[in-house]
Structures are given as C-alpha cells and as structure tokens.
Design a protein around this nucleic acid. Structure first.
Length: 534
RNA sequence: GGGUCGCUAGCUCAGCGGUAGAGCACUCGGCUUUUAACCGAUCGGCCCUGGGUUCGAAUCCCAGGCGACCCA
C-alpha cells in the first residue's frame, strides 16, 4: 500500500509537471538560464553537441604547472597537449581571450588568440573565435588542445588551437571574487561549494586519505575488514535512540544500526581474530556542530589482546593517520595547539576526577554520600544518577572532560556505564575500559570485552529494565548475541572511533558538517516548493 | 528544548517608516598580454512566509519556516 501510493504520486509528477522540479530559490532567474539554453541550441545548429561524449586528455593542470615550472616569461614550447576542465573565469578582448580552466588538480590559464584558433579549427568552424566569445560561459566544461606558453606576466598558459564545449552549464557560478559564503547554500548545494571553494575540495580529499590510511594501517597488521548489517531487528551496542524503518514483504519493523559492536564480536566468536569495520552509523538524536544523525565509525576487535594493547594500537593508528594527512604531529585546532607526539598521557578516571575536584569516589559506601560530595563540589544534574559510578561519570563529564585538550587516555570506568566491558582484574566495581580525549572531546572508546555470557545477560537485563522504565537510549536483551557468547568469545579487546571527529581534528574543521559532504538539513520551504501543486 | 543573530537581484552586500539600491555575473558595443581585466550602455526583485500596526511596511509588532552560533 505504501508502494502503491508512492507510484501513483510519481505518475502525477510525470504527467502533470513536465518541468524539472528545481526549487525556485536555488535556480537562476529564467533569463540567465534561457540565455544559456539558447547558446546550447546555437551550438547544435552549428553541428556541435553541447553535451559531448569524451575528450582526449594528455595532462592535468598540476602536471603541466609542474612540468613547465622553469619555462621563462614570454617563452613558448611546441609540445602539443590536451586538457579539460571547467571554465572559472573569462577575460575577453577583441581578438584575444584568457580563460581560467579548473580541473581536479588545479587551474591553468588558456591563451586564446583569434589567429591560432581560426587556423586550428578552419575545417570544423571558420568562425571558431567568434563562437568562443559568444557561446562559452563561466561554468562550462571545456576541452582544449594547444601548445605551451608562459605569458609576459608570468602565467603558464595553453596557447589553444582547438577547443570544444564539453558540457554547457545552464546555471551561473557565484561571484568570482566573493564566491559562495552563505553557509546554508554551501551545505544544500555542496556541488557549488566544491566548484568554487578549493579548501573544501581539499578537506574531502584529506578525509578520504584518513580512511585510506586507517585501512592500510590495519590491513598491514592482518586485520580483516568485514561488513555487518545496517538493518537490524533490534538495535544495540550503544546507548542511543535508533531510526526505525519498515520492510514491506517481511512486514516487520527494522532498526538502523547504532553501532557495529555486537556483530563484529560474533565474527570473533566465529574465529576471525582481527576484524574491523568502517561504516555508517545512524543515531536518532539532535544535530549540532559535533553531531550528524548519520556518521562514520571504525570499530576494531582483536582476540587475545587487552585494553593496554588496544591503547597502544590506537595511539599508533592515530599517529600514522595524522602523519599521512598533516605536515606535523604538532597541529593547530581552531587556534589551539595540539601535540599528537606519543606517548600520550594515561590516567584513571578516579584519579583524574580526584585531581580536579578533590573528591575520592572510591571511598563512598552509599549513593547518597557520593551525591552529597559531588553536589558540594559543584556537580549538577545528579537526579537521574542511580549508582555511584554514574555520579563519578557526571563529575568527570562536567569538570574534567572539557580540560583534556592534549591527547589523554582515561582508564578504568565504572561498570554501571560500561555494559559490554570486562570487569577490572584488580579494581572491584570498575571495568577495563579507556576513552581517548583530544580537544575536550571523546575521540575513541575501547575495552577488554566482556566474555562471560552469564555476566553479559545480567548487564543486558539491567539495560532492558532501564528501557522498560522509559530510557529511550536503552535496548532489549540480544539473545542471539548471548548465544554466540555461550559458544565462547576468546579474550578480546575492542575499540571504536568516530571518523568524522578525527577528520575534524586533522582538517581543523569547526563543524562536523564541514567534513560530511552532504550533511542532513531540514527540507523546509524549498522542498515544499518543489512539490507539484495538484 | 532555551537564547542571540541572519534571510533583499544568479552571487556578495547596502538600505531600517515615504518611488527597492551597489559591485560582480548576464545582454549589447569597443579592445591582441589579461589574471577581481578595463571603458560605455542596458537588463535584472513574491525584500523567507502569513497576520497585524500605519495614510503608507523591506523597514515596526506577532506567529511561523530555514540557517548559523552559544547554552542544556
């Protein structure tokens, strides 16, 4: 029935609304667009396809800038080259023109003089230079062939003898000087942002390098990347509200995963001793400069290791990634110096909280004592804390976390807030867990995995009780996961890290939206305008 | 969820109670060394939406939409 309704609607769109559904506010005024459509038609009338099939390219802009770096001002060489890209700027004279061409690697100037072009294209277009002036626009994709020349003013250029408009652009580019600065438009129309803002392209190039480096690092150490389900009948592995969706033919609700943890551990049960997954996670939560409802995590599981081993691996991994995308381990994040040079500080949660507020939570026998001491130390929002460990965690989050600017591993968390971690081998009430903080933000989270299925069941049941009590971030008992544990999970350590936050740090980005190509935004009026009116 | 700020031409922005403006882009004319090319002329608007106040609202008030930042 859902599908039926949707297809009916699609039909209406097709039959009642032949015009493309482009929101008015994002489109150029009709006459700017009409002028360019007319130019495309003129190209067709002249026998040229304004939407070409291919262009033989011999070089890109960066290669040519590099290869001819020593060419002197005013000098020319006869080497024939071909290049393609988008016209970013046109400077046109009576019988000469300069275009700035941009490809993925950079920009290169085109030197277009009337005589050379008319000679070069006499067979196909006797008025090629005049057509160049009248039928090209900034924004068009353009292919050229020609020789190299450095102008008197020192700009490396291709002296063009043949050209073709490869794709006629119908939309004007943003102001060539001020560019596109409207933040909302940059996110909604990221393609335009990418066209005109080179530093945005660079950010996404570096983000890609980050995931490539992570894969290289782990693959070299014999970790295997295995994909696990996004669609799950019960979400688990983290405290978060899931997205709910629906499978038609199975007639069942499904959840989008909030973590990859429980499936990756099943793989370790199955015999894979080193596994990881880089994948999209979905959490049905608010949006902020540090939260997007879908984001990318990496989780790593390593059999026979413990959390000390994983701290060492995490430190090595982040250092290796940083070295691959940053000039130095001494970074600047939003004006703040950050030094990733190892070894990083390691300190237990009890110790660092005691240092900060002078309260030793290990001494308390009752929840009331702990709350009273915390309140005296200025900790607020303790109403929902139903265990000493949660009070400790509140104190940590309020007083310590924001101060952890340089990379710091905080270790040995309360069991109450760590339902999947193994009890500490020597400290009762704690688990063998670490979190890595950089710039006051949780960057990674790891622990010796709980392998005792009976203990795990008790922890799950405590979570289920919280869910029954109305905690929307808590989840049901995952019986199949418990069954897997009963077959036996070897001693294992796991670690999870948010790739987006790592990318923010390493690209000096203030908002998570700056490292996500298409961040989630409300659809708003633009989407409403795009709906056909019946 | 609360607060602050923003939304005016394709882009970047002025205008803040009295005929909607500028620069760039576009169109036309001129120009063979420009690189924000230049010179001249033209064109271009549901001032986010809906109410209200007023003789008169882009401007003031109320509600809403979308975004940014801060706080929880």
């Amino acid at each position: 029935m859902r599908a039926g309704r949707r297809s009916t609607k699609s039909c209406n769109i097709l039959t009642l609304n032949p015009q493309p559904l482009i929101p008015n506010s994002q489109m150029a005024s009709d006459d700017l667009r009409a002028t360019r459509i007319e130019k495309a038609q003129q190209l067709r009338d002249l026998g040229f396809n304004p939407y070409a099939y291919r262009w033989d390219v011999t070089h890109n802009a960066a290669e040519l800038q590099d290869k001819y770096a020593d060419l002197e001002n005013g000098a020319e060489v006869g080497d024939e080259v071909a290049i393609a890209g988008r016209i970013m700027n046109r400077r046109v004279f009576g019988k000469l023109a300069f275009f700035t061409l941009q490809d993925e690697t950079g920009t290169l100037q085109l030197y277009l003089d009337r005589q050379t072009i008319q000679d070069g294209m006499a067979d196909t277009d006797a008025e090629a230079f005049d057509h160049l002036k009248t039928l090209t626009d900034a924004g068009d994709f353009f292919g050229v062939r020609g020789t190299l020349k450095r102008t008197d003013k020192g700009e490396l250029s291709i002296k063009v003898n043949q050209y073709a408009i490869l794709t006629k652009s119908l939309q004007p580019l943003p102001d060539k000087w001020h560019g596109l600065t409207d933040v909302e438009k940059r996110y909604r129309q990221r393609y335009v942002d990418l066209i005109v803002n080179p530093e945005v392209r660079n950010t996404f190039r570096r983000r890609a390098q980050i995931t490539t480096s992570i894969r290289q690092f782990l693959t070299q150490r014999d970790f295997l990347e295995i994909e696990t389900p996004v669609l799950q009948s019960e979400a688990g592995g983290a405290d978060a509200r899931p997205f709910v969706t629906y499978h038609n033919t199975l007639d069942m609700e499904l959840y989008l995963r909030i973590a990859t943890e429980l499936h990756l551990k099943r793989l370790v049960v199955g015999g894979f001793e080193k596994v990881f997954e880089i994948g999209r996670i979905f959490r049905n939560e608010g949006i902020s400069t540090r939260h997007n409802p879908e984001f990318t995590s990496i989780e790593v599981y390593w059999a026979y290791g413990d959390y000390h081993d994983m701290m060492a691996l995490t430190e090595e991994l982040i250092v290796a990634v940083a070295q691959s995308v940053c000039p130095s381990l001494a970074l600047t994040y939003q004006g703040q110096p950050i030094d990733l040079t190892p070894p990083w500080r390691r300190v237990s949660m009890h110790e660092i909280v005691q240092d900060a507020i002078g309260v030793d939570f290990a001494q308390f026998q009752s929840l009331d004592e702990a709350k009273a001491a915390a309140t005296a130390a200025g900790i607020t929002n303790l109403d929902k804390c139903d265990a000493i460990g949660r009070v400790l965690n509140e104190a940590f989050e309020q007083k310590v976390e924001p101060t952890l600017i340089q990379p710091t591993f905080v270790t040995d968390y309360p069991v109450e807030i760590s339902p999947l971690a193994k009890p500490h081998r020597s400290k009762p009430g704690l688990v063998e867990r670490f979190e890595l903080f950089i710039v006051g933000r949780e960057t990674a989270n790891g622990f010796s995995e709980l392998t005792d299925p009976i203990d795990q069941r008790l922890r799950f049941e405590a979570q289920a009780a919280r869910k029954a009590a109305g905690d929307l971030e808590a989840h049901e008992v995952d019986e199949d996961f418990l069954l897997a544990l009963e077959y036996g999970l070897p001693p294992t350590v796991g670690m999870g890290m948010g790739i987006d936050r790592l990318a923010m740090l390493l690209t000096d980005s203030a908002s998570i939206r700056d490292v996500i190509a298409f961040p989630l935004l409300k659809s708003g009026k633009d989407a409403a305008e795009a709906e056909p009116s019946p």
